[in-house]
């Protein structure tokens, strides 16, 4: 039997013709599952339609006015900061360009090359530092390494449990509030 059609008639507030209504009523008498659905949805539907609107708290407007001032101030501060940042970057670029143009023997290309070289040097130094660290770890006795691993591992497990417990407590508290 096609229950989907009856389910649609029951749930979708779809206007039904007299013959469809008769067909639905006949089906509901014969089908306990559709009958249960119609009864349950009828109850939910009535409560939804009679549910009141929750009113905003009395202090809502006072909070709005206070928040508006704070947010406008924050927005203005952020705008000024961003403007300052953009101006700073623009001035730095301008200074480099002026240096390149005004100082003899320095060009925009030579400044760019110097900057790129500095970045490459920084990266290669970082790579050397990493290599030094790995070499030092390789020289540490295995017992010490196991000890350090156990301490770090325990700390990680403890932190994970604490995090899990705090999340659980937070969710339980929210359930209670709801």
């Amino acid at each position: 039997m096609n229950h989907q059609l009856y389910e649609t008639w029951i749930l979708d507030e779809h206007p039904v013709t007299d013959s469809e209504k008769f067909e639905l009523e006949t089906h509901l008498k014969e089908c306990p599952s559709c009958s249960r659905l119609a009864e349950s949805w009828g109850k939910v539907n009535r409560s939804l339609k009679s549910a009141p609107q929750a009113a905003a708290p009395a202090y809502f407007m006072r909070n709005w006015k206070a928040n508006l001032e704070i947010r406008k101030y924050e927005l203005e501060r952020r705008r000024k900061r961003n403007l300052g940042l953009i101006l700073g970057i623009a001035c730095t670029i301008l200074v480099f360009v002026l240096i390149a143009v005004a100082v003899p023997g320095i060009s925009l290309i030579s400044i760019s090359v110097a900057l790129l070289t500095a970045v490459v040097n920084l990266l290669s130094n970082l790579a050397e530092l990493w290599a030094l660290i790995t070499r030092s770890i390789a020289r540490v006795p295995s017992g010490t390494l196991i000890g350090i691993s156990v301490v770090l591992g325990s700390w990680f497990v403890f932190a994970s449990i604490a995090w899990g417990v705090s999340i659980y407590k937070l969710l339980t508290r929210r359930e209670q509030v709801a």
């Binding site: 609107q53 929750a54 909070n63 929210r174």
Partner: peptide, 28 residues
């Protein structure tokens, strides 16, 4: 419009404090 907006937030979020914050954020 504070009541309709607050009601929507309250029904969506299920708690008063969160609903008030969400309604304030909506107006902002």
């Amino acid at each position: 419009y504070q009541n309709p907006v607050y009601n929507l937030c309250y029904r969506m979020l299920g708690e008063n404090t969160a609903a008030e914050d969400a309604a304030q954020e909506t107006f902002w």
